[in-house]
Design a protein around this nucleic acid. Structure first.
Lengths: 226, 226
DNA sequence: CCCAAACACGAATATCTCTCGGATTTTAGG
DNA sequence: CCTAAAATCCGAGAGATATTCGTGTTTGGG
């Protein structure tokens, strides 16, 4: 791969006063016709399957194209490079995660924020087990160090969304400290849960339990009910 | 890269009853002559420099060879593939980390384990700032998802060493729970510290402080003085 | 129905990684 | 000091991929 191209502003990228509001789009070009939109999804599906089958090692652009029944040129029609495909998949997963969490918080009858920790972790665990490509990519996880930066961003997005949801649903004061505590929690939880799944394909139960305890304990000292 | 080769047992690899005692060697062949040993170090130095300059994107085998003033063939004389070079560098850093921590624990006059948390984090932070390649690779960190597995292993090694040191130096009961708690702590701390450095080249002070609080609080509930 | 924009395609090109067999240098023995 | 074996070196080039680009199609608004 040649050295990074000039950072052309990508479509959809938006950011204001330090708070991430929009998820960055790793697409070179947003599909305008339904046909191509479906194709892009097929490519992501193919990417996820390959990732689950052979890991990042086995992921090649040719293979993605073949499995998606698309010409290699079509892949590059929408994605600037290979990493972008993986990243887009991570983003799709992130979107899904956000929706599930948001739904739970909406319909769930929680009396206080602390009950949500376990629920959110459960969703993450469930996705880890069932969503193709999730175990490998998580939210733009690691994969290729290229993805590192965006992994960070993605986690920031997760933290930010959670913050909004918590503030909306509970009587918690919205301070900078809250934002920071949540960002740290997401980062730490992601790492520990990751470990749980490394040790056991289904997620080592004891580590899963510890992850919740770790976050719960930490947040208890940082979130003040008003 | 072709699919992974047959896992020939590497020199130096040792493992007993689940406890990691020896660090795995990513070398294809251990240098026997001083001349080549120095060359291998040069390659690692080159790798670290390139990593710091251009990130993993800019790391190519050719470049490593050029900067180390070595023929490309010589690189492959000792390393099975590119990832192994990065991994070896991570290992060298890990070794350095272990030595520093061990020295501190030895000469330091700590009355209880909890004082060590900050010290260990300080060492990590210091290395992050000064050791070439550390900020990118940490202990075999991410880099390439290929390194992922070993990154996990490396963190396990860190956890294991810390456990021994703590048990040796303090009146703490050596239980499986201790081992698990430490493994989790290392994983979580690594992730949060990583984040601190992503946000600020020198490590965001507030996040650094939070990292210590997170780990300290967690361990306090898990380590019982006897 | 028409055409410009959006797509699809895949051979060709650009880059990398990693191999291999011959040339050199170092080490061990006498 | 001399020699053979072992350890290293070398770097052109084979093998794989990633990515580009010009040409031929398809779609959707007017």
């Amino acid at each position: 791969m040649r050295l990074r191209k000039v950072p052309v502003p990508r479509p959809g990228t938006t950011r204001d006063n330090g708070t991430v509001t929009e998820i960055r789009t790793p697409l070179r070009r947003r599909p305008a016709q339904r046909r191509s939109a479906e194709r892009v999804q097929r490519m992501l599906d193919a990417c996820a399957e390959i990732l689950d089958e052979d890991g990042y090692d086995g992921l090649t652009t040719t293979r993605i194209a073949q499995r998606a029944e698309v010409a290699i040129g079509s892949v590059y029609q929408f994605f600037p490079d290979k990493r972008a495909v993986a990243q887009a998949l991570a983003l799709r997963n992130l979107e899904l995660f956000g929706q599930r969490v948001s739904r739970q918080l909406a319909e769930g009858t929680f009396t206080n924020w602390s009950d949500t920790v376990g629920v959110i972790i459960d969703i993450y665990v469930d996705m880890h087990r069932k969503v193709p490509g999730f175990r490998v990519l998580r939210f733009g996880d690691v994969a290729d160090i290229n993805l590192l930066d965006s992994a960070a961003d993605n986690n920031a997005v997760v933290a930010d969304r959670l913050r909004k949801m918590i503030v909306d649903n509970f009587a918690v004061s919205e301070t900078p400290e809250l934002a920071r505590a949540l960002a740290i929690s997401v980062e730490a939880a992601d790492a520990v849960l990751k470990m749980a799944f490394r040790r056991n394909p289904d997620g080592d139960p004891e580590i899963l339990a510890e992850a919740e305890r770790l976050i719960h304990g930490y947040l208890a000292a940082h979130i003040e009910e008003t």
